[in-house]
Nucleic acid binder design. Structure first.
Length: 831
DNA sequence: AGCACGCCGACT
DNA sequence: GTCGGCGTGCTC
């Protein structure tokens, strides 16, 4: 089949570039690359005039583009694809479904270490000596460059404390004072360990004896050799020498200097070599513990197994403390045994905890961990580890769904109701739980969704037979469910029994718990000291300059902070409006609760756990460890304390401000409140002999939802809610698409949103289009927001067509001259 | 997204 | 008169 022409054919490759542009870009494959190039491999290309970026090959063909001249691919980075064909298919699906560009998907999918960025770097032109021609500023920059050899734009900006230096740099280039060059940096650095072993000529016993005696005059070196021999007995088994010893093994010993080791290497007595190692070695491995399932766990896993025969997706609804983890472990084992890969998804915060350590103990090093708190290098290791078969099983967060599996038999989505599976910013605004279902179709695998409080959507699908349903209603080890007490704070206030936020009942119980050395968790879903400050004289309220929200007072750092844009201010001593000194804190967050406990129970050891105390890499884990070890009596926290923590000695959970959670102005409020409060309550009393206690402070103890929470009546909540959803056409009966219009001018934003809403309503009808209306926070980062909510019934509607229709209308509005500067965000399946 | 080009205000 | 602001348009 060989002919001249085949040899002459030039190949072209369509590339996915990590930029938000809808199209692929076609580049020419240099002849010498054409044998090696593969779909899914990365290449380096020039994009635009000077940018040099990495791209992934989406397909290879022989059709030269007609409308433009294709540029050449500069470099091929991978001999083997790092993105599989299935992944490309998935990326495409995600881009289409969530209305974004495939480049944006690639951007969240690839760990940063597999992306390459080019950076322009600046260096001195060695032939330049006309400094008198330069302006002061240019001289300044030149000085810095002389000092540092080479600098990036950002570094120059930082050093001379000025932004937007491009034109100055240009001028310097024009005057031939400096030279620009592109530096492409490969981000991923495998971890290497330097090792030494004996040179091959010393491996028989005679040679060894001669060697040691010949070193009599250099005792230090002799000592090293002897030390080596005592750890690697090569005279018995020369094979052992192959693995050698870590160089660091010797440097740990104070008596051994690096110099003497190096001279041994120089002499050829030792040879130095390097090996690549994994970065996960410090997490404990298998401990050989045998996990035995209880009857109900066995039953659940058998049921799931059966249901998988007919359903793609099974929902495991197991109450808090029912021991779902063991069921997961059983299923993971089965899947791994059948030779398929397994992915276990967890919400971000749950991942740092006990469960990972537990899984790791069972599965050892076939398990990879994919987490945002891990460094990039570690993520690249997991990615590559899956590609070359090292990891059969990955535990990870949301973005782990994009890892390069080729034979994924089982995906477990734990805490499937968690909203953190949905990405909000930036695009793709995907929901990993839903993408998991699509993935399982692609791999012909199965999905297990697990939760104590399933999302209404998932439970609805399970009830309707689309998903299988397995229920676990018993707590593990027959631990009793906690007892509940609703505390009427209105009544307590009338009787003047409240002490700030604390009811007398809560205080009594706290005291009792402290006395008995039992631990308490206090839940207030609001961080900071107080959500706002107010002047008693003129009623001024602390507000963010860029957003329409109040500034939260953070006492520890002595700042007012905006939780939307991160804006910070000093705390005013007097009212900025009237000068009065009567500026008071209003409302309360975790900081204030912590503070008041410290005042009322000075002997208690209190720790706060919220975003502010857990920002550092290991802070979260440290707090949990300390709590587990009994070093903390009272843990005060936001929803962080509600996720997947198992503590034996927690006998009480106190909940503040349940009403605020229940009456949040949002259609999912009841569902969310049920989930959140049930999850926190579940932290109490996980022991059989000692049921825990949950105290809920509320202004309205008679609320139906509270009754359902305290009787653990998920079904009751589900039925009440689902009726509401059906009546008002909300999910799961419809799919929601939220279109948000943003602009710094309120009227522009408003007008654009109105026009867009009209266009949409004209086709879809008033019952399907809601708004535009300003969201709860109307202005964020100085942009005025308007939301349009589109409700689309699940049946008899061409979802895809409607989505492209929406996109079309958005483009219509964007072509209007007066409105084109607006930003539009389309969020498919918004939460 | 980045980056260049181009067209108008406030300064040497 | 220039510097430098950011609106606009393009990237194979």
């Amino acid at each position: 089949m060989t002919s001249f022409f085949e040899e002459e054919t030039t190949l072209f490759a369509d590339l996915i570039l990590p930029v938000p542009i809808p199209s692929l870009f076609t580049y020419r494959v240099p002849r010498e690359m054409s044998e090696l190039i593969k779909v899914g491999a990365r290449v380096i290309v020039q994009f635009g005039k000077k940018r040099v970026i990495t791209a992934v090959i989406a397909n290879i063909h022989t059709n030269p583009p007609v409308k433009y001249q294709a540029k050449y691919i500069l470099e091929l980075l991978d001999e083997q694809p790092i993105v599989t064909a299935r992944q490309l298919e998935l990326f495409k699906w995600v881009a289409e479904y969530y209305l974004c560009n495939i480049g944006e998907v690639l951007n969240v999918a690839l760990p940063a270490g597999l992306k390459i960025t080019s950076q322009s770097r600046i260096q001195l032109n060695p032939e330049f000596d006309y400094e008198e021609l330069l302006t002061e500023q240019e001289k300044l920059i030149l000085e810095e460059i002389k000092k540092h050899q080479t600098l990036s734009y950002e570094e120059v900006e930082r050093l001379i404390a000025k932004s937007n230096i491009t034109s100055v740099i240009k001028s310097l280039v024009g005057k031939r004072a400096i030279i620009l060059f592109e530096e492409v940096k490969e981000r991923y650095k495998p971890k290497v360990v330097r090792k030494v072993r004996l040179g091959a000529s010393f491996l028989d016993n005679d040679a060894l004896v001669k060697l040691t005696s010949s070193l009599d005059k250099v005792p230090k070196q002799q000592e090293i050799v002897l030390k080596y021999l005592s750890h690697v007995p090569v005279y018995n088994n020369p094979e052992l020498n192959q693995k050698g010893l870590d160089k660091s093994f010797f440097s740990q010993d104070d008596k051994i200097s690096n110099a003497s080791l190096n001279s041994l290497i120089k002499k050829g007595i030792f040879e130095q070599f390097e090996i690549f190692v994994s970065r996960f070695e410090d997490i404990p491995l298998k401990d050989g513990a045998v996990i035995t399932l209880t009857e109900s766990q066995k039953e659940a896993s058998a049921q799931i197994h059966e249901l998988f025969a007919e359903k793609e997706v099974v929902l495991l609804h197991g109450i808090t403390g029912s021991g779902k983890t063991e069921v997961y472990i059983e299923l993971i084992k089965q899947a791994l045994q059948s030779g398929t890969q397994v992915l276990f998804l967890l919400p971000e915060i749950a991942l740092t905890t006990q469960i990972v350590i537990r899984l790791r103990k069972v599965f050892g090093d076939v398990m990879g961990i994919y987490h945002s708190k891990f460094s990039d290098n570690e993520r690249v290791e997991v990615w590559k580890g899956i590609l070359d078969g090292k990891f059969q099983f990955v535990v990870g967060v949301r973005s782990a769904i994009f890892l390069p599996f080729n034979n994924l038999g089982l995906i477990i989505v734990d805490e499937e109701h968690e909203t953190s599976y949905k990405q909000h910013e930036p695009a793709p605004r995907y929901n990993a739980r839903d993408v998991a279902v699509i993935m399982s179709y692609m791999h012909k695998g199965k999905v297990l969704l697990g939760s104590a409080t399933p999302s209404l959507e998932s439970y609805y699908h399970a009830k309707n037979g689309r998903y299988g349903l397995v229920e676990m209603t018993q707590r593990f080890g027959n631990a009793a469910l906690p007892t509940f007490e609703l505390i009427d704070i209105k009544k307590e206030k009338k009787q003047r029994k409240m002490k700030n936020e604390f009811s007398s009942v809560l205080l009594e119980n706290l005291e009792h718990n402290l006395k008995n050395k039992e631990q308490t968790i206090l839940f207030q879903n609001r961080r900071g000291y107080s959500p706002y400050l107010q002047c008693e004289e003129c009623h001024w309220i602390s507000e963010c300059a860029n957003c329409d929200v109040s500034l939260t007072y953070h006492m520890r750092v002595g700042e007012l902070r905006c939780h939307y844009c991160g804006h910070k201010e000093e705390v005013p001593r007097t009212c900025p409006n009237c000068g009065s000194t009567k500026v008071k804190t209003m409302g309360y967050g975790t900081e204030k609760i912590e503070d008041e406990i410290n005042l009322m129970f000075p002997q208690a050891r209190v720790q706060r756990m919220d975003l502010d105390t857990t920002r550092a890499k290991n802070a979260y884990q440290q707090i949990i460890q300390e709590f587990e070890d009994g070093g903390i009596d009272i843990l005060v926290g936001t929803q962080m304390v509600s996720k997947g923590l198992d503590f034996d000695n927690v006998s009480m959970v106190g909940i503040f401000d349940a009403d605020r959670i229940i009456h949040f102005p949002e259609f999912r409020a009841s569902e969310r409140a049920f989930q959140m409060l049930t999850q926190v309550s579940g932290r109490a009393g996980r022991r059989a002999e000692k049921p825990g206690k949950v105290l809920i402070q509320t202004a309205n103890p008679a609320q139906k939802l509270l009754e359902r929470i305290i009787t653990n009546d998920y079904i009751g909540m589900y039925e009440a809610e689902i009726a509401e959803r059906e009546k008002f056409n909300y999910p799961p009966f419809t799919r929601l698409i939220k279109v948000t219009v943003k602009h710094p001018d309120e009227p522009v934003s408003n007008k654009a949103a109105k026009i867009l809403a009209e266009k949409l309503t004209a086709e879809l009808g008033t019952s399907r289009v809601l708004g535009p209306q300003p969201p709860l926070v109307e202005r964020v980062r100085n942009q005025f927001l308007f939301d349009i909510l589109i409700k689309l019934e699940r049946e008899k509607i061409n979802f895809k067509a409607v989505k492209s229709f929406i996109q079309e209308k958005v483009i219509d509005v964007l072509t209007d001259k007066t409105l084109k500067s607006i930003q539009v965000i389309i969020d498919v399946d918004c939460l």
